[in-house]
Amino acid sequence: MSLTRIHNFSISLDGFATGEPQSLEAPFGHAGQRLHRWMMATRSWDAEAGSTGVDNAYAERHGPGIGAEIMGSHKFGPPGWHDDPDWKGWWGPNPPFHTPTFVLTHHARPSIEMEGGTTFHFIEATPAEALETAREAAGGQDVRIGGGPSMVRDFLAAGLVDHMHLVQVPIVLGRGVRLWDGLEGVEAAFDVEAVSSPSGVTHFTFTRKAS
């Protein structure tokens, strides 16, 4: 069976994966891009000027083997995007997913076919139901859980994550949406490895233990 994977998911030292308030002008709230600067500095992100090394080695694992993505409503757009029939996500005409992408939302709308192989499907489903739908679309490849933090938390709580690459960034946000709330002891289900990077971030790899 295909795996359920999370990649390049960044949190602050105090566990926040996004700041507040989210808006069209500030997709990550007061956090800005501080959680993602490590990734934006890599060759995987910036082919001409980006760095190689530890961070890039992790960042470039994001895409290979992925046949579908699941994301939450707040990753697809700012508050109120449901009321804008022309909203097609943050990423322009050619989003970086290149697979069927399932947006979990209570507001149904027709699917949107984008350039580069991405088609957004808007579904109301439990994590298990969404994963079953995404696996069917993935054609035997893996399914990526794209975030945001509330949705990642729901998939972890349901025991549906096989592999998680978590990046702890050395900043303190103080407020926003935390990843770990309600997940006490979740690490017991995984083998956990940590690798520190010269950039200051720490890469954690959670691999589900064999049952």
Rank of each mutant, 00 (worst) to 15 (best):
T4Q: 01
T4K: 05
N8Q: 09
N8R: 08
F9R: 02
S10G: 05
E20I: 10
E20M: 04
S23R: 12
L24C: 14
E25Y: 11
E25K: 11
F28N: 07
G29A: 04
H30A: 12
G32K: 01
Q33S: 15
Q33T: 15
Q33F: 07
R37Y: 05
R37T: 13
M40R: 04
A41K: 15
A47C: 10
G50L: 09
G50Q: 08
G53Y: 09
D55I: 14
N56H: 12
N56I: 12
A59V: 10
R61S: 09
R61A: 12
R61T: 15
H62N: 13
P64F: 15
G65M: 01
A68L: 13
G72R: 02
G72H: 03
S73C: 08
H74Q: 10
K75N: 02
F76V: 03
H82F: 07
H82P: 04
H82K: 07
D84W: 14
D84N: 15
W90A: 02
P95V: 06
P95F: 07
P96F: 11
F97M: 08
P100M: 04
P100G: 00
P100I: 02
T101W: 00
T101R: 01
V103L: 06
H106P: 13
H107L: 06
A108T: 12
R109A: 09
P110C: 10
S111E: 05
S111D: 12
I112H: 02
I112F: 06
E113K: 07
E115I: 09
G116H: 11
G116C: 14
G117L: 07
T119F: 01
H121I: 09
H121A: 14
E124V: 11
A125P: 12
A125D: 12
P127K: 05
L131V: 03
E136H: 15
A137K: 12
A138D: 04
D142F: 01
V143P: 00
V143A: 02
R144M: 13
I145E: 00
G146A: 08
G148D: 00
P149E: 04
L156G: 01
L156F: 11
A157Q: 06
A158R: 07
G159C: 15
G159K: 13
D162C: 08
H163A: 00
H165G: 08
H165Y: 04
L166S: 00
V167L: 03
V167N: 01
V169I: 06
P170M: 13
I171P: 00
G174Q: 11
R175N: 06
V177F: 05
V177Y: 02
W180T: 12
L183E: 01
E184I: 05
G185M: 09
G185S: 06
G185K: 06
V186F: 11
E187D: 09
D191C: 09
V192F: 03
V192W: 13
S199D: 08
T202E: 03
T207A: 10
T207N: 14
R208K: 15
S211L: 12
